[in-house]
Computed example of a mutant assay.
Amino acid sequence: MAVYQRPPKLSESIAQQLKDDIIKGIYLPGERLKIIEIARRFGVSQTSVREALKILEKSDLVSESPHKGYVVTNLTLDELVDIWTIKEKLWSLAFAWFTERADKELIKDAEKWVSEFRNAYIENDLDRAFEANFAFTDVILAGCGSRKLVTLLRSIEDQVKRYRYLSLEFDDNLKVSSQYFGEIIKAIWIRDSKKVSTMIQEYIRFSQKVLKENYKYMQEKSKEKMRKEQL
């Protein structure tokens, strides 16, 4: 019997679109989210927009400032390094459990998205690579067998996907990511959870290194965009 799923509320739909915009850098860290402009954009009431922003605030994607209203949360480099360190431990566990517990159909799904990521890298398509990256990890979460771990990782990834997206263009990130994902899938097929765990930790440390080296540039890019919009 099919399970009934409640359709999303208007505020939830707006929150999802704003979340996607924040991740893709349409709204950058520190940028003010103007309620009136967003309401006009979606053709909705300001109340619906405020409700949407409250949803995003719970995920720490936006924060409310006494003088500015809502702004995109700007995580410091130290905060991001802490989060990446947590990610390393949690994803290591998720990938190891997936390797041990997932059935062949789920492994095939994961392999499909790794192949899609490789194609996106070859074509230098950042958006496509980003979508494939998180479709791949969604499959890992689906097969790791722990709802608690899934909840923790989804909460963390909501906060930092935008930094992942921005960092994809640096330091041969697409190429290195594709290579790691390919080797990880091979190890998953032979159920070598120890190797999978080690490789995902190495990969996340590489990702953290790229982020640290380019964080200043990302911040400057955000400030430059905001300066242009204020002219």
Rank of each mutant, 00 (worst) to 15 (best):
M199V: 05
N214W: 06
F117N: 01
G182H: 15
K68V: 00
E116W: 00
L93W: 09
E57F: 00
E105Y: 06
F95H: 03
A187K: 10
K112F: 02
T198W: 08
V160G: 01
C144A: 13
V150D: 04
R191Y: 12
L61K: 00
R32A: 02
L166V: 09
K148M: 12
K89S: 15
L77S: 10
D103V: 06
E229G: 14
K89Q: 15
Q208A: 11
W91F: 08
F98A: 06
R101E: 10
K9H: 13
N173V: 05
A39I: 07
P7A: 13
I107E: 08
S197R: 09
H67G: 06
L53W: 01
K223I: 03
F98V: 03
Y203L: 11
S222E: 10
L28S: 08
L28N: 02
D138S: 11
N173A: 11
H67T: 12
I83M: 14
T198I: 11
V196M: 09
I140R: 01
K24T: 09
I26F: 11
V81Q: 07
S45Y: 09
R162N: 05
F130H: 12
C144P: 07
V62Y: 00
D21A: 13
R101Q: 13
S45A: 12
F98K: 02
A94S: 12
W91Y: 09
W84M: 15
A120L: 05
K87C: 05
A2C: 09
I185N: 04
I23T: 08
A102S: 14
E12H: 07
